[in-house]
């Protein structure tokens, strides 16, 4: 007999959130009118979202701006109340804000500072130690470990406001993980950072995940974050989950084609973009046709035949056959309307 499955650390069941937003006409006339009569619209930010995240899992939550990612995270972290639906984080209802849950959970918001601007990080951490009631030996060991991993020990005594954006974000991470949370919500943790800082934070998150095995939910606009960190992703479109599954499966599900790129020899005849496209259009969708390069999206079953035809029809110098870029597929799914597929 199989042992009972470990209950999910994060679980959402038909979670929905509606916001009532005041809609104002532009200009002075609109402002004057709004003084007497206001128009409100109801915006459905999240629609019946259901999913689970288990121990040691880092799930990427992706979606265009306004898709409802942050709202979903805020509901699960207990910051806002849902309009309907249920959720459980470590067995607690998050918006009831039980202190036992709050001691085991963290939310990192890349766009919002949570540390005290005028204080050095060391003072902020002391305050957090008291807030989370962390025993001193554990606190000191954690600080040492985290600041070493993120290479910010030298900056501990500098006022937060005087740190660079990257250093500040690293301090935010230290602050959020001081109490060794079992559930971590990361809302755009690498936003605005340079490539080096982004990479450092990604490496840190992976190491932290490996060593501590918390359940993590990450939102990011950077596809590299998602590709490097998440094996599973949830795609939100206009508040609705349109995909929940392995990152690798996105390609097979949403891109039933491969990319065949042919680099042409310019010296042999006058192959223009148009003429190449006209000759190869029947083999697949011409994604790009520029002088010297033709890129085709070819159905997977047709790849060999199409590649042979390209070699036969065109003066090819080089040809490559690749999987489509995951980021581009996800972005296409996020942009599409209707036809949701789970």
């Amino acid at each position: 007999m199989n042992p009972p499955a470990t209950p999910a650390m994060i679980s959402a069941h038909r979670l929905s959130k509606e916001f009532t937003v005041h809609k104002k006409e532009p200009g002075l006339r609109g402002s004057l009118r709004a003084l007497f009569r206001r128009r409100y619209i109801v915006k459905e930010a999240v629609k019946a979202a259901s999913f689970e995240v288990n121990e040691g899992e880092l799930v990427g939550l992706v979606g265009a701006n306004g898709a409802g990612k942050t709202t979903l995270v805020k509901m699960l972290a207990g910051v806002i109340h849902p309009t309907s639906g249920a959720a459980s984080v470590l067995g607690y209802c998050p918006w009831e804000r039980d202190n036992r849950l709050r001691r085991k959970m963290a939310l990192i918001m890349g766009q919002k500072a949570s540390l005290w601007w005028d204080l050095p990080a060391a003072d902020c951490f002391l305050l957090l130690r008291e807030i989370y009631q962390i025993p001193r030996p554990r606190f000191e060991a954690t600080i040492e470990m985290l600041t070493e991993m993120l290479e910010v020990r030298e900056q501990l005594k500098i006022q937060i406001r005087r740190l660079s954006l990257g250093e500040r974000m690293k301090m935010e991470l230290v602050a959020a993980l001081l109490h060794e949370p079992r559930v971590v919500f990361l809302d755009e943790p690498t936003i605005g950072l340079d490539l080096t800082a982004q990479r450092a934070i990604r490496e840190f998150l992976l190491r932290y995940l490996r060593e501590h095995r918390p359940a993590m939910l990450l939102t990011s606009h950077y596809m590299e974050d998602i590709e490097k960190l998440c094996e599973r992703i949830i795609i939100l479109r206009e508040g609705e989950i349109v995909y929940d599954g392995p990152l690798a499966r996105v390609v097979a599900t949403y891109a039933p084609y491969k990319v065949v790129t042919a680099h042409l020899d310019g010296a042999q005849g006058a192959w223009s973009a148009e003429s190449a496209a006209a000759a190869l259009g029947g083999l697949g969708e011409v994604a790009e046709a520029a002088p010297g390069v033709v890129r085709l999206h070819v159905p997977r079953a047709e790849v060999a035949r199409s590649a042979a035809a390209v070699l036969r029809e065109l003066p090819v110098v080089d040809v490559t056959i690749e999987e489509p870029e995951i980021g581009a597929i996800i972005e296409r799914i996020m942009r599409e309307r209707g036809g949701a597929e789970r």
Binding site: R97, R102, L107, M109, K112, I131
Partner: peptide, 12 residues
């Protein structure tokens, strides 16, 4: 400004 969010997360 939404800064209340962090306080709602603290067990205090």
């Amino acid at each position: 400004e939404g800064s209340l969010s962090r306080y709602l997360l603290y067990p205090a």
